[in-house]
Nucleic acid binder design. Structure first.
Lengths: 164, 164
DNA sequence: GCTGAAACGAGTCCTAG
DNA sequence: CTAGGACTCGTTTCAGC
């Protein structure tokens, strides 16, 4: 859980390359980073053990799966107590329409990123799964016109001024 | 760009498995789906060509990379004209702190998901990259307490009532 | 379009430096 | 920790169904 402070340039380069394609072979990885394939294998195994690498996921096109409409739902819970929060979160996560869920600081307690077929589907989702729930005090829906993923989350980009 | 309506149960199962681990071998895939490895290879190639599979990405832990604090920034642009939008989007996407960017319908034009080191870093980011820009009329910052990823985006879950 | 086997190439382990 | 080699296993192709 702590910040695993030590990352070689080699580690970072490996992460960068794997972010572009998680299926890059260790051979290619090795060639591009400048170490032996077996070393790459070792590095990646260590990175996995350290917890930096949480998984290798497929990025899919929601539109191609009949989910051409995406939206963000700001949800405000009524009492916002722990007993309500757990079940609410689990229910939302289990919805096939949910893509991501955030617990936020601020007036809106939760933000839910959903992908649906069309506006009728969105209306159904909001009515049946959100506003009909007792603990949900308010839901604000914002359509997503367009979205972009932003670079590879690397590097930390620090100078020598790291306060450990 | 259109909805590629046709997906076998085999295709869907393959997508489901690859979502859990994009590096699942075609051999394992075949064993779990119930077809030959060569068929899996063929299916995946077709899925890639169809555009459903956009990429194989690594999921990393931001905290382990010195980015333990995440936030959502709601940004309102002043005139919100096309000439301003393009450069703004490109600049935000290029920031190493940005994780995702959404163009929204509603009073807040953009939502930016950022990952930073600490509150000081967040303040610097907001001041230097957002409020200092002429086209940015307002920025609202909401911290992320916790976040969850939500299931594998599959299946479309439709009955026979598909209107082609 | 799916299968199975065979050839090729990559992943993995081990030993040594 | 890294490199190189050898063995194992996965991927890919192709002929046949």
């Amino acid at each position: 859980m702590a910040e695993t402070v030590a990352f070689d340039p080699v580690d970072l380069q490996i992460l960068r390359l794997l972010q572009n394609d998680a299926r890059t072979t260790y051979r290619d990885l090795a060639a591009q980073v400048g170490v032996a394939p077996s070393t790459c294998l070792d590095r990646v195994a260590r990175l996995r053990r350290s917890g930096v690498i949480l998984g290798r996921e497929l990025r899919l096109d929601p539109a191609k799966l009949g989910r051409g409409l995406e939206a963000l739902l700001s949800v405000q819970l009524r009492p916002h107590r722990r007993e309500l929060v757990g079940p609410f979160v689990e229910r939302i996560r289990a919805l096939s329409e949910s893509r991501a869920l955030f617990h936020l600081a601020g007036p809106d307690d939760y933000l839910v990123h959903v992908a649906v077929a069309d506006t009728a589907d969105l209306q159904r989702l909001v009515l049946d799964e959100f506003t009909s729930r007792r603990e949900v005090a308010r839901v604000e829906t914002r359509l997503i016109f367009q979205q972009w993923s932003c670079g590879p989350l690397l590097p930390p980009a620090r100078d020598g001024s790291a306060a450990s």
